[in-house]
């Protein structure tokens, strides 16, 4: 069966229009729900770094606590306006940071604008004091992006909890960075050695004993993901260093 060229082209055009229109309609109508899901999920990840016991609770419940007890500030201690916060993407800020670092290395003037580094303050139940500072992070694992929320106690030195997540690390190997037991290894570790910043390092291999206060046990078979994780933690703690070195009291005064 041989059709004319006109028929073939006509069929292709009609098919493209029908399928394109169909997909655009579906994507458009689901967009709002998807955005809502992503926002809820981000809030959940942030909250889990300070309240790991909520991991099985419904997202709406977690989001309610988030809205009540989280205050977002920048490194200078000023509150970030909600409309600015809505547009803020940690991934985009990370790309800017990378650009700046690259430019500094090449001794050029960075071409990107100012980087906003948000800090999520976790307030106590009555809102009188800060219980934890949650630092968002972003980086690259082995295959794709990784990100996390690094919660420090009010002393800005010891870790309250961490949440890591990833886009496409190997299941069972690198993907374990999002497992609770792996993240629990960070709890109680310290990011300062005396007065100097010492980012927590995930060591190579698993099952180590006698690790220092700045090291956590690694993931066997996932050294490259762990390297990405270490780079991310190091880079962001260094970015946040000025904020972390300021005493806790300085921030509460700026409120």
């Amino acid at each position: 069966m041989q059709q004319s060229n006109g028929y073939v082209i006509g069929f292709a055009v009609v098919m493209t229009i029908v399928l394109g229109g169909l997909l655009a309609t579906i994507a458009g109508s689901l967009n709002a729900t998807q955005k809502q899901q992503i926002a809820l999920d981000t809030k959940k990840q942030i909250m889990l770094s300070v309240m790991p016991e909520m991991s099985e609770s419904p997202k709406s419940e977690i989001a309610a606590i988030y809205d009540k007890r989280i205050k977002v500030i920048n490194v200078d201690g000023q509150t970030i306006a909600p409309e600015k916060l809505e547009k803020l993407s940690i991934a985009k800020e990370w790309k800017k940071l990378k650009e700046i670092q690259k430019a500094l290395k090449a001794k050029e003037e960075p071409k990107v604008g100012e980087v906003t580094l948000p800090i999520y303050e976790f307030l106590s139940e009555d809102g009188s004091k800060v219980e934890a500072y949650i630092l968002p992070m972003y980086g690259y694992g082995l295959w794709n992006d990784i990100w996390g929320y690094f919660a420090l106690n009010a002393d800005k030195k010891t870790v309250k909890g961490v949440v890591f997540s990833h886009k496409g690390e190997t299941p069972g190997l690198g993907a374990r960075i999002s497992d609770g037991p792996v993240q629990d290894r960070y709890i109680g570790k310290s990011i300062f050695d005396g007065g100097s910043l010492t980012p927590i390092h995930m060591v190579k291999g698993e099952g180590h004993a006698g690790l220092s206060n700045h090291e956590v046990d690694g993931l066997s078979g996932a050294t490259l993901t762990a390297n990405g994780l270490n780079d991310m933690v190091k880079m962001y703690l260094e970015e946040y260093e000025p904020f972390l070195k300021k005493g806790a009291s300085a921030v509460s005064m700026a409120q």
């Binding site: 059709q3 399928l19 997909l23 579906i26 994507a27 689901l30 998807q34």
Partner: peptide
């Protein structure tokens, strides 16, 4: 049309897959 049947099939399959992906998300 016989001559472009593979690309037509692919278009249909790809569209269905995108729908599944969007709904899951």
């Amino acid at each position: 049309p016989q001559r472009i049947r593979i690309i037509v099939q692919l278009g249909i399959v790809a569209s269905l897959v995108i729908i599944v992906d969007q709904v899951l998300r």
